[in-house]
Every structure is written in structure tokens, then in C-alpha cells.
Write a protein that binds this DNA or RNA. Sequence first.
DNA 1: CCGAATCCACCACGATACTG
DNA 2: CAGTATCGTGGTGGATTCGG
Lengths: 132, 132
Amino acid sequence: MKPEHIDVTAPSGGHLPGNCQAVSSILARIGDKWSVLIIMALGDGSRRFNEIKRMVGGISQRMLTLTLRGLERDGLVTRTVFPTIPPRVDYELTDLGRSLRKPVETLGAWAFEHLPEIQSAREQFDRNATGV
Amino acid sequence: MKPEHIDVTAPSGGHLPGNCQAVSSILARIGDKWSVLIIMALGDGSRRFNEIKRMVGGISQRMLTLTLRGLERDGLVTRTVFPTIPPRVDYELTDLGRSLRKPVETLGAWAFEHLPEIQSAREQFDRNATGV
DNA sequence: CCGAATCCACCACGATACTG
DNA sequence: CAGTATCGTGGTGGATTCGG
């Protein structure tokens, strides 16, 4: 590793070798297909499984289960089972999960703000490409 | 509370149906394996192809090419070819690309800050899982 | 109602070899 | 040096079925 590694954290901060990788693994969770949607769906309180499913829309049962498991594993949501019949399971953001909402919203706001620029950039790029 | 669609943008903003999807497509780019690393590598000025390759480290030639293409398509980086021999290609962040650095760093800082919490949460979760 | 399990299609990605 | 082309593979995610 001769060239300096890259620091995803603030420019002023120091850098340790393993961090980049670890931070990447977290960014991978943020960037995956459903995590952010689910986190936003849980924004204002606890929700039941199928409730989340309806809110997110288009997610399969399997992926909802898997993604929720992942979020639970990372300590971002809690899973509460009510042993009733029919069963009922509530999901809720932890403090850690709630603390993630702000940076995610920041990024979401950026995406939303620059949506037109990006879309027109894509169109223009694709126009040039189709000409080939 | 009747679940509707989810708004990834700031809570105050209005919501249009297609935006969630469009914003997701942008988040997908942010969250993919290499984009963020490359953006940070281009942080302070223009870089050549192999220069980026060395900085990122572990990326294949193929993925670097593809990711750079994607970033270029989205209007985040510019690609400048010098028709010399041997050829030389410089990549540089656009204004749009540079404007993305701040929110990304915010998220990176969050990830870095909560790294220990998340890692210990993962360990604890995995301990319970292995015990089954 | 919640979720686990199975099957399967797709494509993301790496490795390698070749070109201008 | 900066790509492109091709192949192989593991993982991701949808559809479906079963179970408690």
C-alpha cells in the first residue's frame, strides 16, 4: 500500500487502515435497495411488518425480512414479538437508528435538489452514446 | 395513521410519486462499492486513470472504468482525453460532484463515529445467532 | 400475520487476455 | 497507459410454498 489510502471521514480527521473498509460496509447498507426506505418508514414510531411492507411498496416479503434482520443486526431497529394469535411483530428505530435519519435526510435532500441536473446529464450522455 | 408513500427528502418538503424512486437511484450510486471511494480520491484535483486505481486499491480495471463511466454519466466527473502516446486521461470532479462531497462526508462521519456501536451490536447479534 | 425455505434468473464483479 | 472483450462465479432478489 504505497499511495495513501482514502479517508471517507472528515478531511481533518486522522486515518486508520481498517476504517475505510468498515465505513464502506456501513455505506453499503445505506446504499442497498431498501434500507433507507425502511428507515424513513419507521421515522415516526413503531410499525408492524405488513404495515412497513405496504408503506415501502414493491418490496418482497423475503427482502423485507432480510433487510429488517440486517438493520436489527446493526443495532438500528428493534424487533418486538407479541405471542398472540395471529402473531404480531413491531419494529422501531433505536436511538442509533434515529441518529442516522439526519445524515440520510441530508443526502436525500441533496439528491432531490440535484435531481434535474443529474437527469439531464444522463439524458445528454445517453444521447451521445446512442449516436455510436 | 394511514401509510402512504415514503418521502426520503426533508420532512417539510412536498412529495411527488416518482421522486422516491429517482432519489433511490441516486442513493444506489452513492452506496455502490466504489463510487464514494473514487469521489474522495478525486477530492483535491484532477487525477489520471491509473493514479485513481492505485489510490483506491483493490479495484479492478474493469470496475474503475465502469464506475467512472457511471459518474460521468451522472455529471459528477469530467473525462479529459489527451491524444498523446502513450494516451493520458484525466478525471476531475464537476461542481456537482464537489457539492456531493459534503453530504457524503457527513454520512462518512456518522459511520465513523458510530462504528464501535455498530460493530458491537453485530457481534452481540451474531453471538445470539450462533447459540441457536 | 409473520416468516422460513426452496428454486431460479439475473447481473455485479473479478480475472484474464487483447488492442490502439 | 487506458481501455475493451470475454468468460466464470457468487451473490442478490423475486416468486412461490410451507409452517407456527
